[in-house]
Amino acid sequence: MLDKIGIAKRLAKELKDGYYVNLGIGIPTLVANYVPEGIAVEFQSENGVLGMGPFPFEGEEDADVINAGKQTITTLAGASFFDSALSFSMIRGKHVHLTILGAMEVAENGDIANWKIPGKMVKGMGGAMDLVASAENIIVAMMHTNKNGESKLLKRCTLPLTGVGCIKKIVTNLAVLEVTSNGFKLLEKAPGVSVDDIKKATEGTLLVEGDIPEIVF
């Protein structure tokens, strides 16, 4: 089974040279720490920065330079700042190549829910609806099951949707899966996890074809 760092390391393998990438809050943010050697990528934060760098050293924080999670950040050479409308032009206009975000539920038809639990939690969608409605390459990073042990990979989402039919790939603590027209296709399994374990943790249709390789970093 992977921990959050393991999920981030596996996700980092999805980065390609020349990619502009938007990372969501939580596990996706960690991906920036594991960019493969020898490739150039730039991270976009939807509050208005391209070329995001690591967190600042203590004493060097700037209230005017934050990411979408409101954390203080730094910028790298070649960075730029811009307003919120231009930021979402980058996103809706498909100039951002890869989006990695978290989810509460993903359905086998590619629907995603991640912004609201009616009556319990209403924080809002932030930029997630714009991101999932536009990006062609969207990967969800999440735990395979919720805190109650219930599957987050479902036949149909039960929570209010963030986007419809938009998710292509999912990386969890147990597996890497692709969303196909017939269900979740198992691509890779985490170290120490069996195909049976993944089946048990997946409520939606799980497609297993041939030998499933183990995730390598």
């Binding site: 919120s84 969608m125 930029g127 997630a128 609806m129 714009d130």
Partner: peptide
């Protein structure tokens, strides 16, 4: 609650 890009663009 509305999507962030929609909020920006409704202002624009």
């Amino acid at each position: 609650l509305i999507p962030q890009g929609t909020l920006a663009e409704r202002c624009k």
